[in-house]
């Protein structure tokens, strides 16, 4: 009886420690975990590629088995990468107080749905015992990989657009306020010029964020979701450059006004 009591206490303690560990995972930790998993996945793919090249040169049984083993490791690493990415995206949305609740809920649901699919796929990978099965599972995985990512990638794009829009709104607000003050000043040409440049940058940023949004909405299957996601990201990076330029001009206008 004594022994049972002790065992029960330790089990409860272990369970509580696990829940504490999970709740301690922050968005930045999760992001780093994803980047690490992405790197591992890339390395495993290269190792598998090398194994196939080696097998092409020497079709020994040992090399054949290495192709199967490295192939399975590649698939597991890809699933680890996807899983880490989904967990990160979920936390990223959860920790952002500026996101609308419906967007957070959509992401949470899409993440849960796809995390469940990952477990099924792991079972498929574990069942592979030869090259033929590896090829079949690999083909299945390429398609499933896209399925796992598409919905949440599209959701992520919407988040990026939402966040970028808030920064654009803020920059516009500051430009407008500074302009009202500047127009009351004499000899304000230099200040107005800076504000005009800031306004131009903000307009350009808006255009690029709209382009990004259009690309993200095309992150669907059938189609080329990863390419569209990357395209959206590129537009967003340009919008970021526009916003930084806008900020620089606003700051210069502000400093000119302070010197008056």
């Amino acid at each position: 009886m004594m022994r049972k009591t002790v065992i029960v206490f330790f089990l409860i303690a272990i369970l509580l420690m696990q829940s504490v560990a999970v709740s301690a995972l922050t968005e930045s930790d999760a992001k780093q975990a994803w980047k690490d998993a992405k790197q591992v996945s890339k390395e495993k793919q290269e190792i598998h590629r090398d194994a196939k090249i080696k097998f092409a040169g020497d079709k020994s049984e040992e090399n054949r088995q290495e192709v199967v083993d490295t192939g399975k490791e590649t698939l597991h690493a890809a699933l680890d990468e996807v899983e880490a990415w989904l967990i990160w995206k979920d936390l990223e949305a959860e920790e952002n107080p500026d996101l609308p609740d419906d967007l957070k809920e959509t992401i949470s649901e899409d993440v849960d749905t796809n995390l469940a699919k990952i477990d099924e796929l792991r079972t498929d990978v574990d069942g592979v015992s030869n090259q033929l099965e590896l090829g079949i599972v690999f083909l299945k995985m390429v398609g499933k990989y896209l399925e796992l990512l598409t919905d949440v990638a599209r959701d992520s794009g919407r988040i990026y657009v939402h966040i970028a829009d808030t920064y654009i709104d803020t920059a516009e607000e500051y430009e407008s306020k500074l302009r009202v003050e500047a127009e009351k000043m004499d000899n304000n040409d230099a200040i107005i010029e800076k504000l005009d440049m800031a306004k131009s940058d903000i307009i350009e940023a808006k255009r690029n964020v709209n382009q990004a949004e259009s690309s993200y909405e095309q992150v669907v299957l059938p189609g080329t979701p990863l390419i569209k996601f990357s395209e959206g990201n590129n537009y967003l990076r340009v919008a970021k450059t526009n916003l930084l330029s806008a900020h620089s001009n606003l700051n210069q206008a502000y400093n000119l006004m302070l010197k008056r």
Binding site: S41, K42, Q45, E81, Y145, L149, I163, S230, N233, L236
Partner: peptide
């Protein structure tokens, strides 16, 4: 805030 705006691309799985 603008400086922290990041859009990370996803890795692919080559068949």
């Amino acid at each position: 805030d603008i400086g922290k705006l990041e859009a990370d691309d996803l890795g692919g799985l080559s068949g």
